[in-house]
Write a protein that binds this DNA or RNA. Structure first.
Lengths: 205, 205
DNA sequence: CGATAGATTGAGAGTTTTCAACCGATGTGG
DNA sequence: CCACATCGGTTGAAAACTCTCAATCTATCG
């Protein structure tokens, strides 16, 4: 089974639109549905007790989200928020059960997706201890730009993805621009030298 | 489907024993099998470029492991190492495919497991930024002791699980013992006051 | 009993955050 | 259309946290 088939299955389901900043579901809620993105961009965030936010995952066009909580049978562990104009198909639990029943291959596809996400998350745990803040910021910039090249990511979002403060991101951008690695364009950035960006630690000097 | 049924399915498969410290599989290898623990304890570790190790996951009696890479169709992203005398059933890929085919409920069980692990990993990402090293050590001690009460966890292992140095763990243990929160018993520890351990930040003074 | 791995403790170093002030752009309501 | 509020960005300086390094000690095992 491939992802485009999911679109066919869900064809005709009602859609809902969200503007940037609108919350699709909130941490702690019980999952009542699974979501499919027709177009747009959604971020999954966790807000810790101290108020510190972590940017956990990105979902873009033709992605499923909300399925982790659904299959784990847990409440949402984070909140999903539209990062730009986004159209979503909301698939209620009951329909979702039925679709999974009819398409056993779908379970395998989702298991593959979640398994990959687990590896990514665990590698991030390691990098938080292993890599410098600047290296993590460099890699996060590259990753976020790759995932959504036309998105103007804020310093705050990059910080929450990389595990650093938005001030550290600003400082890094200034430094990297002076080195000719990237170019600030208003609030957006353009990466000029991907190799030097990703090998920033060796370039620093 | 419940976990004990898996044992029945695998009944009769050949077993293999590992001593503490023995490697079951190594990072980077292609998954050729999935593993089931008859008895024992296994840790999944990732060693970063710098040599820093991260303790990612624990598997104990009657657990499946190695399945993440198998379903993600990726090479192992970490190495699994026996933490004490452990007996494992090695289920080759082919058999595993067949079993999944015959027991579609197994896929759902594994999807549930991996989904829960993903939430745990993502919460750990958040805590690395949100909580102090001492709080993380306290929670890791509690978690590891809960998962395997009779295991004598080394400071190094606790450090690699909590994301701190083994020296920080040793300092924490001394401090917590002086406060009567736990008791060092040779290399092992006994938790005396779980509540104060888990609310260490408020107790500190 | 000696060798080795694990544990402890102190001191110093370095990284990154926090706090604060300020700037600039954007957007809204009067 | 302007004034003002707000959000995002930048930069500096100080503070805090945790690690690293090093020396020493202790337990465990062959």
């Amino acid at each position: 089974m491939i992802y485009s088939q999911i679109e066919d299955i869900l064809n005709g389901f009602p859609t809902k639109n969200f503007k940037r900043g609108e919350v699709i579901y909130s941490e702690g809620e019980a999952p009542e549905s699974v979501y499919f993105i027709n177009f747009g961009l959604v971020g999954l965030f966790y807000i810790a007790q101290s108020g510190k936010e972590t940017f956990l995952r990105i979902f873009d066009d033709k992605s499923i989200f909300g399925h982790r909580s659904y299959f784990a049978e847990e409440n949402y562990h984070g909140s999903s928020i539209a990062l730009k104009e986004t159209q979503i198909i909301i698939v209620p639990k009951k329909e979702c059960d039925a679709i999974c029943e009819q398409h056993p291959q779908l379970l395998k596809l989702l298991l593959k997706q979640v398994s990959k996400d687990l590896a990514s998350a665990e590698l991030r745990i390691s990098q938080l201890q292993d890599k410098s803040s600047e290296q993590r910021i460099a890699e996060s910039l590259w990753f976020l730009k790759l995932r959504s090249p036309n998105q103007t990511w804020t310093r705050k979002e990059v910080g929450e993805y990389s595990g650093s403060s938005h001030e550290s991101v600003a400082r890094f951008l200034t430094k990297a621009e002076n080195l000719g690695i990237l170019k600030k364009e208003g609030r957006d950035i353009e990466i000029l030298d991907e190799d030097r960006l990703l090998n920033f630690e060796n370039v620093k000097k």
